[in-house]
Amino acid sequence: MPGNNLTLPETGPAEVQPVQPNLWEILKVWLKIGVQSFGGGSSTNLLIRNEFIYKRGWLSEEEHLRFWVLCQLVPGINLIALTILIGKKLGGAAGIALSLAGMLLPSAGITTLLAVGFSVIQGWSPIQAMLKGLTPATAGISLVVAVQFANPLFRRAKKEGPIPVAISFFIIGGGAFAVTFFKLPVVSIFIGGAIIGGLAFGSGFLNRPKKNIS
């Protein structure tokens, strides 16, 4: 299966051998993620990393990041696309079906049950106070995911030298700055990142041998 091959060999330590877990195990892990994934996309991504990368070694850090990048390029809910890609890698079509079932059925069921009862509890001040605590926690969790995504990219850049490190900082900082202060649409940040990344890392510009002046 092509998806089992790692595409960024220079990052080294995070590489894993392809593993084919059985379908029951796949369903079990996704059910666990499905019922625990409170707090939105970042929390769920963190759970996915913990279960699939760190605990079981079924996925590498690079694969997860590459999958997540591909998920940004398709319509709909990114986490569902990510579930589909991981499910396919681990178990083909059956893996996709079981991964989606495990991820979505518990959370959609709980969401529906909450919709049934929410009008009763939404006005309670303890619930309001707890929600106020959960909102900033999602910022902390998003930061964890940002750092974990950035780690393999900077490990690779460090090996290549100071200019790739500087370019990496520029893409991250420039994108964040442009969205925050100039309200540029997210898609323009992806396009900008793709152009700079393609030119700087993919065109051979940085690796061009220097002329020998003697």
Partner: peptide
Amino acid sequence: HRPLVQGIIRGVSLAVVGLLLVVVWSVL
């Protein structure tokens, strides 16, 4: 496996990190 494609994906991956920082900033 084409270097240009890897470079593009690497650039978009870095942009994803930047956008996660935007989420952090906008919440805080």
